[in-house]
């Protein structure tokens, strides 16, 4: 077992398969894979590994990539270096006669390398089987036709929400019903009403501003009035979830509230009624927005 003391050809690049010695560490599964590659690519007898030579190559191979490796992986390579260096040292030590029976220091490493190589054969078997299996197609191999595209609104509501909302929709007005023409609803009117209500209570349901009249024009005017007062920071609008009741909260302090309660037609209101303009229920607009203020 003198081969272990062979000096590595330090410095010069080691030719492997005609190319200079560059080892991409990423290609290797781990230290055993790298070691096996070094041995096999140089036609080295695995049962008589020139340990000093291989150790040198191994250390140089990992020198480059070690810094870029995750710590755990680096540790695995370093552990193998330590093993190699230890074996190298054992091989160099002069061994007294009485230890002649002792095992070759390389024996355990050789056993592991052979075992690793054995399982590389199994890997080949599995790869071949996997590839062959890939050539058998099952039902459903060819992709389905794309399903019809259903655009969904981004609302998340439960069936209960939907039913509750549906219940709040008033019954359709019979077509035959005759209605007075040109009853114009103004935003200003609703603003006054809202100011009056909010003066008495801390909060008012938006519903109260239009429910008694029951028409769409009143609802629109009420909503615009609420938005206008919210803009003026008189009220705050709250709705906990889609389709739930809309609440209007007074933002005014006690004195403010009483002061503004009955000044139905002051500046902002007139302005808002003009801005929002008159909303007609029926027929052509008969009068201006100021009509009812």
């Amino acid at each position: 077992m003198i081969s272990g003391s062979t000096k590595p050809q330090a410095g010069s690049p080691i030719a492997i398969g005609g190319e200079s010695f560059v080892v991409e560490l990423d290609r290797f599964q781990g230290p055993l894979d790298l070691l096996l590659h070094l041995i096999r690519s140089q036609d080295i007898d695995i049962l008589d590994i020139p340990i000093a030579h291989i150790t040198g190559q191994f250390l140089r191979a990992i020198e480059e990539g070690l810094d870029r490796m995750p710590l755990e992986r680096a540790g695995e390579f370093l552990e193998m270096s330590a093993t190699l260096v230890r074996i190298k040292a054992q091989m160099l030590l002069p061994r007294p006669e009485r230890y002649e029976w002792e095992e070759d220091p390389r024996a355990e490493l050789v056993r592991r390398l052979l075992e690793y190589e054995h399982f590389q054969d199994v890997v080949h078997v599995l790869q071949t089987a996997e590839a062959q299996r890939g050539r058998h197609m099952a039902k459903g191999y060819i992709e389905d036709r794309p399903p019809p595209v259903i655009s969904r609104p981004q609302l998340e509501v439960s069936l209960r929400d939907l039913l509750e909302a549906a219940a709040r929709i008033p019954d359709p007005v019979p077509v035959a019903q005759v209605r007075p023409p040109s009853a114009t609803v103004t935003v200003g009117e609703k603003v006054s009403l809202l100011r009056r209500l909010i003066g008495k209570a801390k909060r008012v349901a938006l519903e109260r501003l239009f429910k008694p009249w029951g028409t769409r024009a009143h609802a629109v005017a009420a909503l615009l009035a609420a938005l206008e007062l919210a803009r003026q920071q008189v009220i705050r609008i709250e709705q906990t979830k889609p389709f739930s009741p809309i609440w209007l909260f007074s933002l005014a302090t006690g004195s403010d509230r009483s002061g503004s309660a009955d000044t139905g037609a002051d500046g902002p209101e007139l302005e808002s009624s003009r801005v929002g303009s008159g909303i007609e229920e029926n027929g052509p607009r008969a009068a201006g927005a100021e009509e009812l203020s």
Binding site: Q132, R135, H136, M137, G140, Y141, I142, E143, D144
Partner: peptide
């Protein structure tokens, strides 16, 4: 059967 793989592989597969 495996010999039909080349034909099937021309389709979009799942």
């Amino acid at each position: 059967r495996p010999e039909y793989a080349p034909y099937l592989e021309r389709f979009d597969s799942v």
